[in-house]
Nucleic acid binder design. Structure first.
Length: 413
DNA sequence: GTTGCCGGGGA
DNA sequence: TCCCCGGCAAC
């Protein structure tokens, strides 16, 4: 992996060995990061895009790539807390044997305020901290620049096709206020809804301080062929754009998240990994789930791998099928594609990055091992069959099927 | 190497 | 349809 030489590097932690494109990007853009008051100007939007994608990339990727497959979230709380900042990751080249991704913690001041917390499986709210009025007015001190609702991130099907995506996305806006989930088609509408219903402000947008921005999310509905496979998914809820809930598992939050006055994500309690047994076809990993959200962490949280600190619970992550999560970040100096394939237990995790049109797309695909089984061949029965029971010398005692070298009918499994 | 059995072919 | 077997894959 070639490292871009451009981009000023300020002092870094001497222990930091890995320098990645994200770090570069981080350095480039973060020096001027300021939490926008509201999404008004184009400039602000651009900055939002950069910042949001950067944060999202860090957040979304960290629990999945920093550790060995079965302990995907290991070190999340540790490094996150230690470093206090989401450093860039550096995919290694030995991806085929289990990708190794490392993070470095930039020691510069590119991220002046409280770093974003590690990805949490139980809530998104820590990430939806109001930043209205800039960092200073941020109630929690957490930096969470308003994420661009237009293109902050989008989650694509494995190999994203941005141009196509742009033309095939239908954008909806979903209220994130707890137990609300109202979906409107316009920002004005959703803002008005939040302002009047949830914030209790009856005035029009003139008196808005932009806080509403943080109470809704954009849902991009892919209408192209990619989405065809998702036709069963409803566009009105972000939860339906997430993978179906796997069987109940002792998933635990990746780390403790400070409480926020922010409303919980509407689907906090019913994110895909939270429980349920949505039946999926087990014949093939064809049911890939397209998750769209301008706040990528909202989409990726559902697939958080349980913290390894809770011992072997990580193996309980058993989505009933495979699903893919992708998101994009703003332009960075990076050339070439990277992919990592992590295998752990019954899970296969694909991580890939692709640069297209100056956008870096990150993609994660989880595949449960059982789907690797060929459906064409029946799994060999474990019980003793006629051949084993009676032996070759008593072949006449075998059932007909065994004599014919067919599936035993006498000792069925 | 052994075992289970699918797929195919001959009668 | 009955019967057999090559060959594959799991063990």
């Amino acid at each position: 992996q070639s490292l871009p030489s451009e981009g000023k590097r300020v002092g870094r932690d001497p222990d930091t060995r890995s320098v990645s494109l994200l770090e570069q990007k981080r350095k480039v853009v973060s020096s001027s990061i300021d939490v926008p008051h509201a999404r008004r100007s184009e400039e602000e939007v651009d900055m939002d895009k950069v910042t949001a994608a950067m944060v999202l990339t860090s957040l979304s990727t960290s629990p999945l790539v920093r550790s060995p497959p079965v302990k995907v979230s290991e070190g999340l709380s540790g490094s996150w807390k230690e470093n206090g900042s989401a450093g860039p990751f550096t995919p290694s080249s030995n991806s085929s044997s289990g990708g190794y991704w490392s993070w470095s913690a930039p020691s510069d001041q590119s991220n002046p305020s409280t770093p974003s917390p590690p990805l949490s499986a139980d809530s998104f709210k820590p990430f939806r901290v109001p930043s209205v009025g800039g960092v200073g007015s941020n109630p929690t001190g957490a930096e969470d620049p308003s994420l661009d609702e237009q293109d902050g991130s989008s989650l694509l099907f494995d190999e994203p096709i941005p141009r196509k995506r742009k033309n095939s996305m239908k954008v909806m806006f979903k209220c994130l206020w707890k137990n609300c989930g109202k979906v409107l088609s316009t920002t004005a509408g959703i803002q008005r809804h939040i302002r009047t219903i949830h914030l209790g402000r009856n005035c029009d947008s003139d008196c808005s301080d932009g806080e509403e921005d943080f109470y809704y999310t954009e849902i991009k509905l892919n209408t192209d062929s990619v989405a065809d496979g998702l036709s069963s998914l409803s566009p009105v809820s972000s939860s339906v754009l997430s993978p179906p809930p796997p069987p109940p598992s002792p998933l635990q939050p990746l780390s403790h998240q400070p409480e926020s006055h922010r409303p919980s994500h509407p689907s906090d309690s019913k994110e895909p990994h939270a429980g349920g047994n949505t039946p999926l076809s087990r014949s093939a990993p064809s049911a890939l789930y397209l998750i769209h959200s301008d706040h990528a962490y909202q989409a990726t949280a559902p697939v958080s791998i349980p913290s390894s600190s809770s011992n072997s619970s990580s193996t309980s992550f058993t989505p009933t099928n495979s699903f893919s999560i992708s998101w994009q970040s703003p332009p960075v100096t990076f050339t070439g594609n990277t992919s990592a394939l992590l295998h752990g237990g019954n899970i296969s995790l694909h991580i890939s990055t692709v640069e297209l049109n100056s956008l870096i797309y990150y993609s994660m695909t989880f595949i449960v091992g059982s789907f690797f089984l060929p459906h064409s061949r029946k799994v060999r029965g474990e019980g003793k069959k006629c051949r084993k029971v009676y032996g070759m010398e008593n072949r006449d005692m075998w059932c007909t099927a065994c004599r014919w070298k067919k599936a035993c009918q006498r000792f069925t499994d």
